[in-house]
């Protein structure tokens, strides 16, 4: 092959490759703003704390608040309930966690009321709701059962219900969204 022709072909290949590569890089970079625009907006990320007054929640009863668009389950636990979730072999659970690692004050359990199976809202907050075998929450969608610590005990769900970060800003008012960060393994 003639040397000049060969040189020309190499140069053309180089230009094709460079142009193609730049086109791919350009199109790829252009895709990022589009994808990122679907992530939560700055105000959505910044919002997401709520304050709940617990003064009227009697021992043994529950309160459902709203946090980041999901129900927040708050239960004022009785001494027997506290005993039932603390004096037990937590290491054998599906998602092993101590109740002490899921609460700030023993009488208050505060969790995001979303089943970790496929996102339904478990029953058990209202009087007369089925609470399952462990007296906690029962998910009507696929039968997951949680104890009074919100830990998965039976059924298809893989994880305990999520404990949001919170702090008590007074004896009876809890600030949910920032404060103590709970471990929540798996989330």
């Amino acid at each position: 092959m003639d040397q000049a022709v060969k040189k020309g072909a190499t140069r053309r290949d180089f230009l094709y490759l460079t142009a193609g590569a730049m086109g791919v890089v350009g199109a790829g970079s252009a895709a990022w703003p589009l994808i990122d625009s679907m992530n939560p907006a700055a105000d959505t990320l910044a919002a997401g704390s709520t304050e709940v007054d617990l003064s009227k929640v009697e021992v043994g009863s529950a309160l459902t608040a709203v946090w980041r668009g999901s129900p927040l389950f708050i239960r004022h636990r009785t001494p027997e309930e506290i005993k039932s979730v603390r004096d037990m072999d937590w290491k054998s659970l599906r998602d092993p966690q101590k109740d002490e690692d899921r609460t700030l004050k023993a009488e208050w359990i505060i969790i995001k009321g979303v089943c970790t199976h496929l996102g339904c809202i478990p029953l058990g907050q209202k009087a007369g709701d089925p609470r399952g075998e462990f007296n906690g929450w029962f998910c009507p969608c696929h039968g997951s059962q949680y104890d009074v610590s919100g830990r998965i005990r039976k059924g298809p769900a893989p994880l305990n219900m999520f404990v949001p970060p919170y702090k008590f800003i007074s004896d009876t008012v809890v600030h949910v969204g920032s404060g103590h960060d709970f471990p929540n393994p798996g989330f």
Binding site: P33, L34, D36, S37, N39, A41, A42, D43, T44
Partner: peptide
């Protein structure tokens, strides 16, 4: 507030 919303 939306990420790259100004660009869109």
């Amino acid at each position: 507030e939306v990420n790259y919303g100004w660009l869109l």
